[in-house]
Amino acid sequence: MKKINISRKNLSIPYMIYMVCFVVAPLAVLLFYSFTDSDGKITFHNFINFFTDGNTLGTLLYSVVVALITTLVCLIIAYPVAFILAKGHIKNKTILLMIFIMPMWINFTLRITALKEILTFFEKNLAYFPFVNTIIGMTYDFLPFMILPIYTVLINIDDCYMEAGLDLGADKVQAFMKIILPMSKAGIISGVTMVFLPAMTNYVILDMLYNSTYIMGSLIGSYFSAYDWHNGSMISIILLTIIIIVTVLSTDSNHKEERL
């Protein structure tokens, strides 16, 4: 009988197949479509189109602004919450954490529908404040993704670091700014990546809150629903490139510091 050779190489085969089918192949298709026209000829027209069309550039700018503000608002809310949950002297911490995490288990459209009702109650007509509503909706939706990584990092920072800071003459604010905040940087970066990138593309929230302005996600959707695979793919590729650059930059700054 032939011996079955279970080497590391062989063990990786299923994973390789998965990667080829679901990551490499779709990317290749995306790349192919973005650099061809409807006749199948190779062209850079789609690329040039993106950067010359005022509309698409405007959409990109709008998406970045929405994502930036959402991330900032999430961070401002999430950090104190995570800090109190991780370091505060409160009873029933788990229940409090649950309150912030539980919305993640409820269907996303249901959550936004509920939010819509609440906002309508206060604003009468949602169309008056489309931008503000978008920020509220996105913050509401993405907040747990910001809280969790920061909370995880903070809970693992031993109290002795804060005490060491106080011991060396820092007051509580100084000790926090000089020790706890930099030590929790990894959590902030991971939270920012988890909020910023989806916030650029999640157009369902805009749709449901009656914000008719396009963001990157809606732009791609609109091209695809008009069967314009080529321009849609090109935008996806450009978005992907932006995301890769942002990710590399943020992890790189993290690494650089470790090496120093």
């Binding site: 031993d158 002795c160 670091y161 005490e163 060491a164 106080l166 011991d167 060396l168 003459g169 820092a170 007051d171 020790i179 030590m183």
Partner: peptide
């Protein structure tokens, strides 16, 4: 602690 002229060496060092 920050107002006391004493300093501590912690059990697990607590180096930043």
């Amino acid at each position: 602690p920050n107002k006391r002229p004493v300093n501590t060496v912690f059990q697990r060092y607590a180096l930043f």
